[in-house]
Design a protein around this nucleic acid. Structure first.
Lengths: 361, 361
DNA sequence: GTTAGCAGTCTGCGAAAGTGAGTGCCAAGA
DNA sequence: TCTTGGCACTCACTTTCGCAGACTGCTAAC
């Protein structure tokens, strides 16, 4: 559940924060996340039990600013956390959070309602995550390449037209039309189907190339016409390029609630990112590390122009022990990190469990 | 290609517009669509060849306002068209528009690139329409109820677990898991599949209820266990409730380019509509009439709160001679209606053609 | 029926002034 | 050496005011 630090490497500026400085940094982050207003020394002494006067807080805050944890939007304003400040908060200061029992139950129920069709599950997950996070939810759908072959059926459509239906263990059924050079006997199609199912079931889709299909058919019929073998292999191994992997979005309208997106330019840059997909896909994939813990990237750590006001929380999900895709929440840098992490963890956990449950044997 | 009038009934206020008034109304609409600024009498005399002075135009505009075609945002501003003004423009004054040969070619090429999978086609169409219209594109996906059954295959998974794959003529393959009360012999599954394919192919999915399945199996096996019949029938006829029909959106970010959505409230109300789906679905379906012509609903005609600044252009699309769904463009009321209508016509035409081409025999 | 001219209205913009939140620093106190 | 009250200062934000500009409606003349 602990976040991974990605970029940049922590710069040890002077000694560790002492207890009071750590507490002040914590309260500033907490208060700023809650109010979206720069936090002043008086606010802290009033709202939190610090035991010292505002003047002392001022001194401490000046020090925290000098060390790079806080910044002042302008001379006569309170402080807001810098990327480093947020990073320290997330990694070391933040209290661990969990969802309420009701929320956990809600997530559980939503997944219990979900069907078996992969597309539908993924779509519902996106909606759920958007609703819970009140931010932009992003889901990278499973790659076809991680799915294993379960069953196929060749169906005679017309003289030179064969329909091939492929079922994967993820419960995805897709169809391809094969147009052989010369007509094939319908009974042969059934024999081909049986042979292929027997030999290839359980293999990863990308492995099923021309040679694999030819070999699987060899026993029952050494000289199947190449156009059929080719058609079958294409249908099985046909894979989208990775950058074309499906990405789903949900809850963009929640962004309008955040004061940071009152500024149309910032809203624009985030929506453009959504539109472009490729960049976002790259960033999300870069964020993922081994293991099932959520990863946080804060502001400038995203290394995207115009995204310095945003943060991204990502977590992988799986089917069985195979990684399938990624859930992410993209929102203002001023987001409740603890809650977001608890939330993506719970969602990813339930999603993984559900996918594993509905996987075909 | 001519728009349908929906709501409200035209109120014949006084005589028809004379030629000059009609021309002035046309130029006001045209100019306002182009500039988003209220149009004054001086602007018209300068930019258009009216042959009379601005004072005359003022008199005419006052008359047009009195008759309900124009309104003044405030006393000392120029005029903008009212719903009635736009309606008159769309129905009677607007010059017919067509896409440029390059644009037509672009649309053609995009569809030529599209695959055979229904989901993919619909998704790409949404993107294309958003890109061309530079507005919010909305696509109501085909209902499962309009598709005919083409093929099914029952596949033995485990002792009490059968996978049923269903293929429709729209080229959609979907899978359902059936859990019979007692185990079924794998060879029997093949026999069932063959019988069902032979008897039911070509029927509409919603017709395939318990009785239909039972009857189709009766010849080969009079007493198939009810749990299997029920499972098959559910898988075939299983239909989402109509209000759960899938709706796709694209190009929401284009709205940010329109000056009318600088105001976050208006942006908000349109995004909320998108989120809610049900209302929008209803409005889009209400808009559709018989025939393949685009339908326009302007501002208040939508009868939606907070949508008085928006217009909707809708058009149905089909596969073969069966209506499948609706394309729509939702944007500011100040939209280039002629172009939008040409655009949805072209897109729907190509989409219908493509769907018809890829339909399974 | 058309036109020039003029008074009147309203918006939008920028400057000026006032308000308030919050800081930094200093000198005294613990 | 750390803490604190006090004070001067800074800067954003808001309000007000006045002015320029865009348009209209109306009237009287053509």
């Amino acid at each position: 559940m602990s976040a991974k630090r990605i970029v940049p490497e922590p710069q040890p500026r002077g000694p560790e924060l002492d207890k009071r400085k750590a507490y002040i940094l914590t309260t500033v982050v907490y208060e700023y996340i809650a109010t979206a207003e720069p936090v002043g020394s008086a606010t802290l002494t009033h709202k939190y039990n610090l035991g010292v006067s505002s003047a002392t807080i001022r001194n401490e805050m000046a020090e925290l600013e000098a060390r790079g944890y806080l910044v002042q939007p302008h001379t006569s304003a309170g402080r807001i956390p810098s990327d480093t400040g947020y990073r320290t908060y997330v990694d070391r200061l933040m209290p661990p959070e969990t969802l309420t029992p009701e929320e956990n139950e809600h997530v559980r129920v939503e997944f219990a309602k979900a069907g078996r069709a992969l597309d539908e599950i993924i779509e519902q997950t996106t909606k759920l995550l958007a609703q819970l996070s009140q931010n932009l939810a992003v889901v990278v759908a499973p790659s076809r390449d991680t799915q294993t072959f379960r069953h196929l059926q060749l169906i005679w459509l017309a003289e030179r037209s064969i329909l091939m239906v492929v079922v994967t263990t993820a419960g995805v059924a897709e169809q391809h039309v094969i147009e052989p050079e010369t007509s094939v006997d319908p009974d042969d199609l059934t024999r081909y189907s049986n042979a292929l199912n027997k030999r290839l079931s359980g293999k990863l889709l990308p492995e099923l190339d021309y040679e694999a299909v030819e070999a699987a058919l060899f026993d029952i019929r050494p000289h199947v016409q190449p156009s059929v073998i080719d058609g079958v292999a294409r249908g099985l191994a046909a894979t989208r390029r990775p950058e074309e992997r499906r990405i789903l979005f949900g809850g963009a309208h929640h962004l309008l609630d955040q004061p940071e997106f009152r500024d149309l330019k910032k809203l624009r840059s985030i929506l453009d990112l959504v539109e472009e997909q490729r960049t976002l896909y790259q960033v999300i994939l870069d964020s993922i590390e081994k293991g099932d813990a959520p990863t946080v990237r804060i502001g400038g750590e995203l290394e995207l122009d115009d995204m310095s006001e945003c943060s991204l929380v990502t977590i992988p999900y799986r089917m069985g022990d195979r990684s399938m895709g990624v859930l992410a929440v993209l929102g203002a840098r001023r987001m409740p990190y603890g809650r977001m992490m608890a939330l993506v963890s719970a969602t990813a956990g339930n999603l993984s469990q559900h996918l594993t449950d509905v996987a075909l044997p």
